Amino acid sequence: MSIETVEVVNPGLQTTVQAWPGRLGLRAFGHAASGPMDHVCFRAANALAGNQPGVPALEVPMLDLSVAMLQDTQVAVTGPEGVRLLRNDVEVPMWQTLDVQVGDVLTTVSTSGPGFRVYLAVAGGFDVPEVLGSAATSLVSGIGGVEGRALGRGDVLRSHGRARIGRRRLPEAMRPRFTTDWEIEVIQGPHGQPDFLTADDWETLTSTVWRVDLNSDRIGTRLHPHRFAWARPDGGVWGGHPSNLLDTSYPAGGVLANGDVLTILGADSNTSGGFAVVATVPRCGLWKVGQMRPGRDQLRFREVSYDEARALNARVDFSIDPARMIGNA
């Protein structure tokens, strides 16, 4: 049985219910996985609330969210260090289990510091219906979460009941580090050199400081324009620009070359199209893409091998394992 748990007082900019890892196995049918843009903070919030890592929780872009508690329960909020979490206008810690009571109002207060998204989990997870195998909200498809949309003022969310756990926190040394100048891991291809990019192009891609465009969202993180030399003069029968090709599938985290503009494909991105994917961000780097602030942050790409990416993925998983968490009195 589920219980009314949270009422939205101030929904912020585009707060959604997400679930990890989202809708897997449906890219061939045109459905991106959706789910959290920063899977590390999302999974950590759930672990701190005593949940399995993938149950539904809230993703809050960097604009203040305020919710009223409708039952006694436990919550956890994770995200950038500079964000302030208030309970009834009194600051309380993030990155740990928090006991709350009926009538408490929780508010996230954003700052100008690093990072862009905050995650709020409640004990038992939010009770929203699964659509195509996941409760994750897809704003593009209009499915999942609460009617496939961002939360609005007055929305009431229910949660599954669960016995209280001993309070826990994630040590600062294990938490992700936020910055305005990011290093993002990439694996070359599937449309890399020598067929699409030249060796100099790849060197440029991995040495340039790229600016994150203001027009970035859950669909894609756009970077400033750059004209590569390309290994071919045009796209042949597929189009005039060398980045053009016959429609093909896009990998999650692909770095898409739409003409002279690179875009890192996000959680709600297209799953196929007619542009080259010159590199792919592995899971260990995707959480960082989810924390880049549009119009301000910048990044460098760092090439890694497939085996190195797998090792880095495992390191990320290790850092937010519940076994790494410390009990609080």
Rank of each mutant, 00 (worst) to 15 (best):
D201Y: 05
D201E: 09
W202G: 10
W202P: 08
T204N: 03
S207F: 00
S207R: 15
S207D: 10
T208G: 10
W210A: 08
L214W: 09
N215T: 13
S216Y: 01
S216D: 03
R218E: 06
I219T: 14
I219K: 13
I219L: 11
G220F: 00
T221M: 09
R222F: 00
H224I: 13
H224K: 14
H226V: 01
R227H: 11
F228G: 03
A229V: 15
R232T: 12
R232K: 15
P233K: 06
G235N: 07
G236H: 02
G240N: 15
H241R: 14
P242T: 01
P242I: 00
N244I: 00
N244T: 07
L246H: 04
D247S: 15
D247Y: 00
D247E: 13
D247P: 14
T248Q: 12
S249K: 01
P251G: 14
P251H: 12
P251V: 14
G254M: 12
V255W: 03
V255G: 07
L256I: 02
A257D: 04
D260H: 14
D260Y: 11
D260I: 06
L262C: 12
I264S: 09
I264R: 13
L265T: 02
G266E: 13
S269Y: 01
N270Q: 12
N270V: 06
T271R: 08
T271P: 13
S272T: 04
G274E: 13
F275P: 05
F275H: 15
V277D: 07
V277R: 06
V277P: 04
V278E: 10
A279Y: 04
A279G: 10
T280F: 06
T280A: 08
T280I: 12
T280L: 05
P282D: 10
R283W: 09
C284M: 08
C284R: 06
C284A: 15
L286N: 11
L286C: 11
W287R: 08
K288H: 02
V289I: 14
V289N: 06
V289W: 04
Q291V: 15
M292G: 02
M292Q: 07
P294V: 08
R296I: 02
R296C: 08
R296P: 00
D297K: 07
R300Y: 01
F301T: 00
F301C: 00
F301L: 02
E303T: 00
Y306A: 11
Y306K: 00
D307C: 01
E308L: 00
A309D: 09
R310K: 11
R310D: 06
N313K: 01
V316T: 04
V316L: 04
D317V: 03
D317N: 11
F318C: 09
F318A: 15
S319M: 08
S319I: 00
S319W: 01
